[in-house]
């Protein structure tokens, strides 16, 4: 990635033949793009942002005005609609539940995946190769299709309706283990681990003092992705949670499936549920982009 970022823009004229040839050939792909490229990208991004804007636009009017006038600019009714959302669904509870679920899942996935990734990347033990192959193979298994027995088990043990039922199945993921293994294999030198062992560190202290500090960037990315995935999880929470104790996604579904659908109310709810995640994106977007692109190269 960095190879292109670091290359200065090609300069024109006044160079030796060799240099000119290079700058010319580079300019084939490095030339500053014209208005067409920017235009297409702007159109694409406007298209990407439009549904968000639409949601806020509808949410900021009252139902009658919106239907009658079809305005293009936001009105002043947003907080009125937001108030009705609070009356219709347990919004704060849903938000809190989502934060608890996604937060717990994220911390757990990061810690347990890093631990397993460390073992797979740096420790020698019998069956390491086949076990790692097994982990990768489970990536392709659609475990979502096992929700029926999972639901029966949760109901049997009285877990349905509780946040634990949503948290526990996601405490560690194959993706997380694979991701951390790939990173640790490159980022943590064997010598460092051996040195720590020589100095008398136990395995867990070696992990804690040598491995963890070195893998912070990858762990942070795994954390961001896990949080987003957990935040958006829908099918399983919909089945196992109820309307009194929902996550944000389940609450939104309840809001939409009411008997009388008032779209200013529903879209006020979606706007309110979207804003926190948009803020996270504005703060961490750079890391998310880098994470996706690194994952693509490594995977």
């Amino acid at each position: 990635m960095a190879t292109i970022t670091d290359r200065p823009a090609p300069t024109a004229g006044g160079t030796t033949p060799a240099k000119r040839r290079r700058s010319k050939s580079v300019s084939l792909s490095e030339r500053r793009p014209g208005f067409t490229v920017y235009g297409i990208l702007i159109a694409f991004i406007l298209g990407s942002a439009f549904p968000f804007y639409w949601s806020f636009l509808v949410a900021s009017h009252d139902d009658a005005t919106f239907t009658a006038e079809a305005p293009l600019l936001p009105g002043g009714q947003f907080f009125v609609n937001a108030g009705r959302v609070f009356d219709t669904i347990p919004f704060w509870k849903a938000l809190g539940n989502s934060v608890i679920v996604s937060g717990t899942v994220t911390v757990s996935v990061v810690v347990l995946s890093t631990l397993a990734g460390f073992a797979f990347a740096k420790l020698r033990f019998k069956g390491r190769g086949p076990l790692m192959v097994f982990v990768v193979a489970t990536l392709a298994v659609p475990t979502q299709l096992g929700i029926i027995p999972l639901y029966m088990v949760m109901a049997e043990y009285g877990w349905s309706g509780t946040l634990g039922a949503v948290i526990v199945p996601n405490l560690v993921t194959a993706f997380g283990v694979f991701w951390m293994r790939q990173y640790i294999a490159d980022a943590v030198p064997d010598e460092l681990i051996e040195a720590a062992r020589m100095d008398g560190c136990s395995m867990i202290r070696t992990f804690w003092h040598v491995c963890l500090p070195a893998v912070r960037p990858a762990a942070a990315m795994l954390g961001i992705f896990t949080f987003m995935m957990s935040w958006n999880d829908f099918l399983w929470p919909l089945i196992v949670l109820n309307a009194d104790n929902p996550t944000m996604q389940v609450a939104l579904e309840k809001l939409q499936s009411g008997y009388y659908v008032d779209k200013t109310l529903v879209l006020a709810g979606t706007t309110m549920a979207t804003v926190p995640i948009l803020i996270v994106f504005l703060v961490l977007g750079r890391q998310i982009v880098a994470g996706i692109m690194q994952g693509a190269v490594k995977g």
Binding site: A49, L252, T270, V280, V289
Partner: peptide, 16 residues
């Protein structure tokens, strides 16, 4: 900018 839709909640966006 192009990644923006990816972070949005699926439920919210489907409703929209």
């Amino acid at each position: 900018g192009v990644l923006l839709p990816y972070v949005a909640s699926l439920v919210a966006l489907t409703i929209i």
